[in-house]
Structure formats: C-alpha cells, structure tokens
Amino acid sequence: MLDKRLLVVSAQGGVGKSAVSAGLAQLATRQGKRVLVIDMGESAGLAAHLGVRDLVFDPIEVRPDLHAMRLIRSDSLIEYLTLQLSLKGLNRFSRVARAFDALATAAPAVREIISIGKVLWEVRERKWDLVIADAPPTGQIGSYLRAPRSISELVPTGRIERQAAWMGETLRDPDSTEMVIVSLAEELPTTETRQTLAWLETNELVPEPMVITNRVVPELATAAKGRGPVRDAAIHHRSVYVEQQKWLSELPPHVELPYLFGLLTPTEVAARLSDALEESL
C-alpha cells in the first residue's frame, strides 16, 4: 500500500486516525520515501503525533523526508485562484476570496473540491513519493470523495468542471489511491466502518478500501485465577477481549494494531504504531 501515490485515511472521531496517519508516514519515510502528510481537519492531533507544536499551510520538514502541512481552506482557495486564474495580489480578505467562501458554504461540493483538490494537486505535482491525507471523519468523507462528481453535475462547463474530471480519475485509480479506514473493535466504530464500506462500494469513487483496526488487545492465554485485583484484571481483560473479537468478526479482512497500555506521549504512540504497521503490512 505504501507504493501508492495517495493514502486517504478516514475514521470515526477518536479512534486514532491521526496517530495511524503519522505511523504510516514514519514507516514510509523509513522505507526511503519522500512523504507529505496533510492534516485536513481542525484538530491538533496530527501535529502532536509528529512531535511538533503546530502545522501551517506551507509544508514543514518534521524529520528528514517527512513533510507535514495543515490544509487551510482559505489559503488553498487563494492558491488555486492565483495558480489557475493568474490573479495576483489576492489575500484572504479580498472580495473574490470572500465571495468564494460564501459560495463554499452554500453551494454543494465547492468547499470539498477546494480541500480535496489541494491534496490531489500535491499528488499530481510529483514532488512527493507518497501523499498521506489525514482526512475528514467517515461521517463527512463521502462528500469529499464525491465532490468531483457533484461539481460536474452542478456546473456542466468551466475550468472547475474540467479539473473535477481528473480529480475523480485520480481518486478512482487503484495504482494511485488507497483508501484507509481506521476502526476500533467496538460497537459504534464497527457499525460506522461497515456503513462507510457499503457506501464506498455503491458509489465506486475509490478502489476497495483497506481497514485498520486500532487498539486490539491480545488473548490472555491463561484462566482467570487468584483473588482480588489479579483476578479482577484478568476478568476485565477477558471481557474486553471477548467483546473485541465479537466486533472484529463483523469486519472484512483487516490489519490489527495493538492496544498500547499505560502512559505514552503522542510521538511514542505514533512510533509504536509505525513499528506495528511494519510487522503487519
């Protein structure tokens, strides 16, 4: 999967999407690739897992060959208008940018195409071996992946429509794009993952996705004996394990990442996940 050009990583909130994105980015870098990882959301998660305070629109090299940026829609829009329309001297307060921002709230797919368009632009520019998008949550990802098609339906001609066509093709191309859905072995994330998989299969916007299940506990290969906390902790582990196995069986074939116990910093979490990914991919 790391031989693709673009990984789009989505998940329900709080399951470790940014940690897995950072882990994948580190692994790809270790394998000698030049990587750009893009935070498409508003959370500070990705920056923390990469060990930096904050991310901005211009990519920074957080470690050799590992670059990271935050997708800021207004900056992305200005870059688009400047590059595509050769309009000079635009800034975020200019009337064109503000008019677009208004449009982006009211018109379907405009704001999504500006965001996903920037990601796909970075893929197309070929400055990177691999672009990893720490993408919006599964509840919203559909409208981003569908944005090129929606734009074509909304505006049948024009420059945006022409670009929407190649964007849609890049997303569908199995040599370019891999969709990754991070899940947990719990009821709500499993249900949401299954719904997302079904939606993706129906809409055929990306190749068949890969599922990564985070925080899976190992089997406790002994009976719960003893008394007090020893026994209680064993019973606790057993019940977590049994519950997780029930939900794991509801998912299609997937990669499992281990539950990380105890106090770890966000960068330690990303490093451990990166090692675990290396073993299982």
Partner: peptide, 12 residues
C-alpha cells in the same frame, strides 16, 4: 464575473 467564469455558470 471572474467567479462565475471559474465556476462556469450563473451559480453565484
């Protein structure tokens, strides 16, 4: 008009 030319219709 620029905006409409990019979007390619009377969307605005």
């Amino acid at each position: 008009r620029i905006a409409d030319s990019v979007l390619g219709s009377n969307l605005l």
